[in-house]
Nucleic acid binder design. Structure first.
Lengths: 138, 138
DNA sequence: TATTGTTATACTCTATAACTATA
DNA sequence: TATAGTTATAGAGTATAACAATA
Protein backbone atom coordinates (compact mmCIF):
# COMPACT_ATOMS: atom_id res chain seq x y z
CA UNK A 1 0.00 0.00 0.00
CA UNK A 2 1.08 3.53 -0.62
CA UNK A 3 2.90 5.42 2.09
CA UNK A 4 2.03 8.77 0.55
CA UNK A 5 0.97 11.51 2.89
CA UNK A 6 -2.66 11.83 3.85
CA UNK A 7 -2.61 15.40 2.56
CA UNK A 8 -1.57 14.22 -0.89
CA UNK A 9 -4.17 11.46 -0.91
CA UNK A 10 -6.97 13.81 0.13
CA UNK A 11 -5.99 16.41 -2.42
CA UNK A 12 -5.94 13.99 -5.32
CA UNK A 13 -8.99 12.06 -4.18
CA UNK A 14 -10.80 15.38 -4.22
CA UNK A 15 -9.38 16.37 -7.60
CA UNK A 16 -10.67 13.17 -9.15
CA UNK A 17 -14.09 13.70 -7.55
CA UNK A 18 -14.24 17.19 -9.06
CA UNK A 19 -13.25 15.82 -12.44
CA UNK A 20 -16.37 13.64 -12.28
CA UNK A 21 -18.93 15.91 -10.62
CA UNK A 22 -17.86 19.06 -12.51
CA UNK A 23 -18.81 17.80 -15.98
CA UNK A 24 -21.92 16.11 -14.53
CA UNK A 25 -23.20 19.50 -13.33
CA UNK A 26 -21.87 21.59 -16.19
CA UNK A 27 -24.98 21.17 -18.42
CA UNK A 28 -27.02 22.67 -15.56
CA UNK A 29 -24.78 25.72 -15.38
CA UNK A 30 -23.73 25.27 -11.76
CA UNK A 31 -20.84 23.77 -9.82
CA UNK A 32 -20.73 21.58 -6.73
CA UNK A 33 -20.57 24.48 -4.29
CA UNK A 34 -23.62 26.12 -5.81
CA UNK A 35 -25.50 22.83 -5.65
CA UNK A 36 -24.65 22.66 -1.96
CA UNK A 37 -26.13 26.12 -1.43
CA UNK A 38 -29.30 25.14 -3.30
CA UNK A 39 -29.55 22.03 -1.11
CA UNK A 40 -29.33 24.02 2.12
CA UNK A 41 -31.78 26.64 0.91
CA UNK A 42 -34.27 23.95 -0.07
CA UNK A 43 -34.00 22.11 3.24
CA UNK A 44 -34.13 25.13 5.56
CA UNK A 45 -36.13 27.68 3.61
CA UNK A 46 -36.79 30.47 4.36
CA UNK A 47 -33.27 30.95 5.64
CA UNK A 48 -31.02 34.00 6.03
CA UNK A 49 -27.74 34.15 4.13
CA UNK A 50 -25.78 33.83 7.35
CA UNK A 51 -27.67 30.75 8.46
CA UNK A 52 -26.96 29.14 5.11
CA UNK A 53 -23.30 30.20 5.30
CA UNK A 54 -22.87 28.73 8.79
CA UNK A 55 -24.46 25.48 7.69
CA UNK A 56 -21.91 25.10 4.90
CA UNK A 57 -19.02 26.57 6.91
CA UNK A 58 -18.35 29.25 4.34
CA UNK A 59 -17.74 32.93 4.99
CA UNK A 60 -20.77 35.23 4.89
CA UNK A 61 -19.05 37.45 2.30
CA UNK A 62 -18.54 34.38 0.13
CA UNK A 63 -22.22 33.61 0.50
CA UNK A 64 -23.09 37.07 -0.83
CA UNK A 65 -21.19 36.32 -4.03
CA UNK A 66 -22.74 32.87 -4.34
CA UNK A 67 -26.30 34.11 -3.87
CA UNK A 68 -25.51 36.89 -6.36
CA UNK A 69 -24.50 34.29 -8.93
CA UNK A 70 -27.46 32.02 -8.23
CA UNK A 71 -29.81 34.99 -8.44
CA UNK A 72 -28.33 36.06 -11.78
CA UNK A 73 -29.03 32.54 -13.03
CA UNK A 74 -32.62 32.79 -11.84
CA UNK A 75 -32.26 29.89 -9.40
CA UNK A 76 -32.86 31.76 -6.14
CA UNK A 77 -34.63 34.95 -5.08
CA UNK A 78 -33.93 37.31 -2.21
CA UNK A 79 -36.96 38.75 -0.49
CA UNK A 80 -37.22 40.71 2.77
CA UNK A 81 -37.34 38.44 5.79
CA UNK A 82 -40.73 38.70 7.53
CA UNK A 83 -39.33 38.73 11.08
CA UNK A 84 -36.17 40.82 10.72
CA UNK A 85 -35.66 43.44 8.07
CA UNK A 86 -31.88 43.17 8.27
CA UNK A 87 -32.10 39.67 6.85
CA UNK A 88 -32.71 38.34 3.39
CA UNK A 89 -35.00 35.35 3.11
CA UNK A 90 -33.40 33.45 0.28
CA UNK A 91 -35.59 30.94 -1.51
CA UNK A 92 -35.40 28.68 -4.51
CA UNK A 93 -37.28 29.67 -7.62
CA UNK A 94 -39.26 27.14 -9.62
CA UNK A 95 -36.27 26.76 -11.89
CA UNK A 96 -33.95 26.52 -8.88
CA UNK A 97 -35.91 23.56 -7.55
CA UNK A 98 -35.71 21.89 -10.94
CA UNK A 99 -31.95 22.43 -11.20
CA UNK A 100 -31.53 21.14 -7.65
CA UNK A 101 -33.42 17.96 -8.44
CA UNK A 102 -31.50 17.26 -11.60
CA UNK A 103 -28.18 18.35 -10.07
CA UNK A 104 -28.62 16.08 -7.07
CA UNK A 105 -29.30 13.14 -9.38
CA UNK A 106 -26.27 13.99 -11.51
CA UNK A 107 -24.01 14.14 -8.45
CA UNK A 108 -25.40 10.89 -7.05
CA UNK A 109 -24.53 9.24 -10.32
CA UNK A 110 -21.07 10.83 -10.44
CA UNK A 111 -20.37 9.72 -6.86
CA UNK A 112 -21.41 6.19 -7.75
CA UNK A 113 -18.90 6.16 -10.60
CA UNK A 114 -16.30 7.72 -8.31
CA UNK A 115 -16.69 5.02 -5.65
CA UNK A 116 -16.84 2.23 -8.18
CA UNK A 117 -13.24 1.05 -7.45
CA UNK A 118 -14.21 0.30 -3.84
CA UNK A 119 -16.08 -2.62 -2.33
CA UNK A 120 -19.38 -2.00 -0.59
CA UNK A 121 -17.66 -2.46 2.77
CA UNK A 122 -14.94 0.02 1.91
CA UNK A 123 -17.50 2.63 0.84
CA UNK A 124 -19.30 2.30 4.15
CA UNK A 125 -16.12 2.57 6.21
CA UNK A 126 -14.81 5.45 4.10
CA UNK A 127 -17.93 7.51 4.64
CA UNK A 128 -18.03 6.78 8.36
CA UNK A 129 -14.35 7.67 8.69
CA UNK A 130 -14.61 10.90 6.69
CA UNK A 131 -17.61 11.87 8.73
CA UNK A 132 -15.62 11.75 11.95
CA UNK A 133 -12.42 13.21 10.46
CA UNK A 134 -14.35 16.16 9.03
CA UNK A 135 -15.84 17.02 12.40
CA UNK A 136 -13.47 19.02 14.50
CA UNK A 137 -13.46 18.71 18.21
CA UNK A 138 -9.91 20.00 18.14
CA UNK B 1 -24.53 8.29 9.47
CA UNK B 2 -24.24 11.57 7.67
CA UNK B 3 -25.62 11.90 4.18
CA UNK B 4 -23.49 14.91 3.42
CA UNK B 5 -21.83 15.05 0.03
CA UNK B 6 -18.46 13.45 -0.44
CA UNK B 7 -17.14 16.81 -1.64
CA UNK B 8 -18.09 18.44 1.66
CA UNK B 9 -16.60 15.59 3.67
CA UNK B 10 -13.31 15.66 1.77
CA UNK B 11 -13.03 19.42 2.05
CA UNK B 12 -13.55 19.47 5.79
CA UNK B 13 -11.51 16.35 6.45
CA UNK B 14 -8.68 18.12 4.66
CA UNK B 15 -9.25 21.38 6.52
CA UNK B 16 -8.93 19.62 9.84
CA UNK B 17 -5.77 17.85 8.70
CA UNK B 18 -4.24 21.20 7.74
CA UNK B 19 -5.21 22.63 11.11
CA UNK B 20 -3.08 19.90 12.71
CA UNK B 21 -0.12 19.63 10.32
CA UNK B 22 0.22 23.39 9.74
CA UNK B 23 1.09 24.29 13.33
CA UNK B 24 3.23 21.14 13.61
CA UNK B 25 5.45 22.36 10.75
CA UNK B 26 5.29 26.06 11.54
CA UNK B 27 8.31 26.05 13.91
CA UNK B 28 10.37 24.66 11.01
CA UNK B 29 9.30 27.51 8.72
CA UNK B 30 7.72 25.32 6.05
CA UNK B 31 4.27 24.09 5.11
CA UNK B 32 3.03 20.68 4.01
CA UNK B 33 3.57 21.30 0.31
CA UNK B 34 7.17 22.35 0.87
CA UNK B 35 7.76 19.25 2.99
CA UNK B 36 6.43 17.17 0.10
CA UNK B 37 8.94 18.81 -2.25
CA UNK B 38 11.79 18.15 0.19
CA UNK B 39 10.67 14.51 0.42
CA UNK B 40 10.74 14.03 -3.35
CA UNK B 41 14.10 15.78 -3.71
CA UNK B 42 15.58 13.59 -1.00
CA UNK B 43 14.27 10.35 -2.49
CA UNK B 44 15.14 11.04 -6.13
CA UNK B 45 18.14 13.35 -5.94
CA UNK B 46 19.61 14.63 -8.18
CA UNK B 47 16.32 15.44 -9.87
CA UNK B 48 15.24 18.15 -12.32
CA UNK B 49 12.50 20.57 -11.34
CA UNK B 50 10.15 19.06 -13.88
CA UNK B 51 10.70 15.52 -12.62
CA UNK B 52 9.90 16.69 -9.10
CA UNK B 53 6.86 18.59 -10.35
CA UNK B 54 5.50 15.57 -12.21
CA UNK B 55 6.00 13.38 -9.19
CA UNK B 56 3.85 15.70 -7.08
CA UNK B 57 1.43 16.53 -9.91
CA UNK B 58 2.05 20.24 -9.62
CA UNK B 59 2.67 22.67 -12.44
CA UNK B 60 6.30 23.30 -13.43
CA UNK B 61 5.80 27.06 -12.97
CA UNK B 62 4.54 26.38 -9.46
CA UNK B 63 7.65 24.31 -8.83
CA UNK B 64 9.83 27.29 -9.81
CA UNK B 65 8.21 29.36 -7.08
CA UNK B 66 8.49 26.57 -4.52
CA UNK B 67 12.17 25.92 -5.23
CA UNK B 68 12.72 29.71 -5.08
CA UNK B 69 11.20 29.76 -1.60
CA UNK B 70 13.09 26.70 -0.40
CA UNK B 71 16.33 28.10 -1.77
CA UNK B 72 15.74 31.42 0.00
CA UNK B 73 15.32 29.44 3.22
CA UNK B 74 18.60 27.64 2.58
CA UNK B 75 16.97 24.21 2.41
CA UNK B 76 17.76 23.34 -1.22
CA UNK B 77 20.37 24.34 -3.78
CA UNK B 78 20.18 24.54 -7.56
CA UNK B 79 23.26 23.42 -9.42
CA UNK B 80 23.77 22.72 -13.10
CA UNK B 81 22.70 19.22 -14.06
CA UNK B 82 25.70 17.13 -15.17
CA UNK B 83 23.90 15.47 -18.11
CA UNK B 84 21.75 18.29 -19.50
CA UNK B 85 22.55 21.94 -19.12
CA UNK B 86 18.93 22.98 -19.57
CA UNK B 87 18.10 21.30 -16.28
CA UNK B 88 18.67 22.26 -12.69
CA UNK B 89 19.79 19.52 -10.39
CA UNK B 90 18.00 20.43 -7.20
CA UNK B 91 19.40 18.99 -4.00
CA UNK B 92 18.83 19.27 -0.29
CA UNK B 93 21.33 21.22 1.76
CA UNK B 94 22.54 19.95 5.11
CA UNK B 95 19.92 22.12 6.76
CA UNK B 96 17.31 20.91 4.26
CA UNK B 97 17.94 17.32 5.29
CA UNK B 98 17.60 18.26 8.94
CA UNK B 99 14.32 20.12 8.34
CA UNK B 100 13.03 17.17 6.31
CA UNK B 101 13.80 14.73 9.10
CA UNK B 102 12.16 16.85 11.76
CA UNK B 103 9.26 17.83 9.51
CA UNK B 104 8.51 14.23 8.62
CA UNK B 105 8.44 13.31 12.31
CA UNK B 106 6.17 16.27 13.08
CA UNK B 107 3.74 15.30 10.32
CA UNK B 108 3.74 11.64 11.41
CA UNK B 109 2.77 12.79 14.86
CA UNK B 110 0.10 15.17 13.54
CA UNK B 111 -1.38 12.43 11.36
CA UNK B 112 -1.50 10.10 14.35
CA UNK B 113 -3.50 12.68 16.27
CA UNK B 114 -5.66 13.29 13.23
CA UNK B 115 -6.56 9.61 12.85
CA UNK B 116 -7.07 9.12 16.56
CA UNK B 117 -10.90 9.06 16.27
CA UNK B 118 -10.70 5.98 14.02
CA UNK B 119 -10.14 2.34 14.88
CA UNK B 120 -7.07 0.57 13.53
CA UNK B 121 -9.24 -1.20 10.98
CA UNK B 122 -10.82 2.02 9.80
CA UNK B 123 -7.42 3.65 9.35
CA UNK B 124 -6.26 0.79 7.20
CA UNK B 125 -9.38 0.80 5.01
CA UNK B 126 -9.35 4.60 4.74
CA UNK B 127 -5.81 4.67 3.45
CA UNK B 128 -6.42 1.83 0.99
CA UNK B 129 -9.58 3.52 -0.26
CA UNK B 130 -7.99 6.96 -0.64
CA UNK B 131 -5.11 5.37 -2.45
CA UNK B 132 -7.40 4.01 -5.13
CA UNK B 133 -9.69 7.04 -5.25
CA UNK B 134 -6.72 9.37 -5.70
CA UNK B 135 -5.44 7.40 -8.67
CA UNK B 136 -7.20 8.34 -11.85
CA UNK B 137 -7.77 5.83 -14.54
CA UNK B 138 -10.60 8.03 -15.76
C1' DT C 1 11.66 21.28 -33.33
C1' DA C 2 11.18 20.02 -28.50
C1' DT C 3 12.34 20.65 -23.65
C1' DT C 4 13.78 23.18 -19.16
C1' DG C 5 13.51 26.88 -16.54
C1' DT C 6 11.73 31.38 -16.10
C1' DT C 7 8.69 35.54 -15.97
C1' DA C 8 4.48 37.97 -16.48
C1' DT C 9 -0.11 37.64 -16.11
C1' DA C 10 -4.67 36.28 -14.85
C1' DC C 11 -8.11 33.71 -12.60
C1' DT C 12 -10.38 31.32 -8.64
C1' DC C 13 -11.26 30.93 -3.94
C1' DT C 14 -11.28 32.86 0.30
C1' DA C 15 -10.71 36.11 4.15
C1' DT C 16 -10.49 40.85 6.45
C1' DA C 17 -12.02 45.44 7.20
C1' DA C 18 -15.20 48.90 6.85
C1' DC C 19 -19.67 50.61 5.64
C1' DT C 20 -25.25 50.73 5.95
C1' DA C 21 -29.43 49.56 7.78
C1' DT C 22 -31.61 47.59 11.06
C1' DA C 23 -32.29 45.42 15.84
C1' DT D 1 -24.03 47.78 21.01
C1' DA D 2 -24.67 43.92 18.07
C1' DT D 3 -26.16 41.69 13.75
C1' DA D 4 -27.18 41.00 8.44
C1' DG D 5 -25.86 42.17 4.23
C1' DT D 6 -22.71 44.44 1.29
C1' DT D 7 -18.44 46.27 -0.95
C1' DA D 8 -13.59 46.84 -1.62
C1' DT D 9 -9.50 44.81 -1.19
C1' DA D 10 -5.86 41.57 -0.65
C1' DG D 11 -3.79 37.19 -0.18
C1' DA D 12 -3.20 32.32 -1.35
C1' DG D 13 -2.87 28.87 -4.93
C1' DT D 14 -2.80 27.69 -9.50
C1' DA D 15 -2.70 27.88 -14.59
C1' DT D 16 -1.56 29.87 -19.37
C1' DA D 17 1.38 32.15 -22.64
C1' DA D 18 5.62 33.65 -24.15
C1' DC D 19 10.61 33.83 -23.93
C1' DA D 20 15.81 32.36 -23.58
C1' DA D 21 18.97 28.69 -23.34
C1' DT D 22 19.89 24.24 -24.64
C1' DA D 23 19.02 19.67 -26.71
Amino acid sequence: MSRRRLGYLFKHAQLRLTRLTGPALEPLGIDGRELAVLTVLDARSPVSQQQAAQELRIDRTTMVAMVDALERKGLVARRPHPDDRRKNAVELTERGRDVLTRGAAAVEEAERAYLEPLTEDERRVLRAALDRLATDED
